[in-house]
Amino acid sequence: MGSLDYFLFVAFPYIAIAVFLVGTIYRYNQKGYKVTSLSAQFLENRRGFWGTVPFHWGILMVALGHLVAFLFPKLVLSWNSDPARLIMHEGLGFTFAVAVFVGLAALIIRRLTNERLQQVTTRMDLFIEFFLLLQVVLGCWIALGYRWGSSWFAADLSPYLWSLVKLNPQTDAVIAMPLVIKSHIVCAFSILFVFPFTRLVHLLVAPLHYIMRPYQVVIWYWDRKKIRDAGTPWSEARPRNN
């Protein structure tokens, strides 16, 4: 194993994961205020629709697909053992990938051509958008050029990722992969690496707890009854929210 391969497929993944964890936790604790979706729909609505909707639903599905193949490789392999199901699976995955590509391209063009949007665009926004675009292009290329990705991902890459998780990296399968696939993997860890410093952080605050919450929220500075009871120790009467 060359030292470059060792760095890219053993050291770098750990660095990326470490930066991701420390970075997001630090950012959330120190600058939690800045963790927001930074939506620009308010400034540009119509064109944004054609970008943001395919992009978000597409990337959610594609990411979910990767996750399932990583977590349950056997399930994916057995599903794929029937050619009709394999084609359907791959076709669906590819459709979502194309949706991501189209949406992202539309978002980038919108961001570059709308004057109002330029006021709320940082260099990091553009960097991460182009980087994601590169990653999607690589992904589509792999899907078309190296069939059938869903099967060999489950068979070869999932064990590699699991070996990383188990702190016992097995890189033989990865190193034997073609360059495009290797780039896709390195890009994926790079995205993880820069994640805490980009607008992508809003993904981590997806408001799923809304589903469980009662609709109305009432917050009290003080527990109304305890505060009026002289016998209550004062630190007991701190806010009882909701």
Binding site: G32, Y33, V35, T36, S37, L38, S39, Q41, F42, H202, V205, P207, Q216, V217, V218, I219, W220, Y221, W222, R224
Partner: peptide, 21 residues
């Protein structure tokens, strides 16, 4: 967003808002 129990004023907690609009 929440309603203050004591006086019913409705406020947005800026640290919790994530811009979902």
């Amino acid at each position: 967003l929440y309603k203050r129990g004591e006086d019913g004023i409705v406020l947005v907690n800026q640290d919790v808002c994530r811009g979902w609009r």
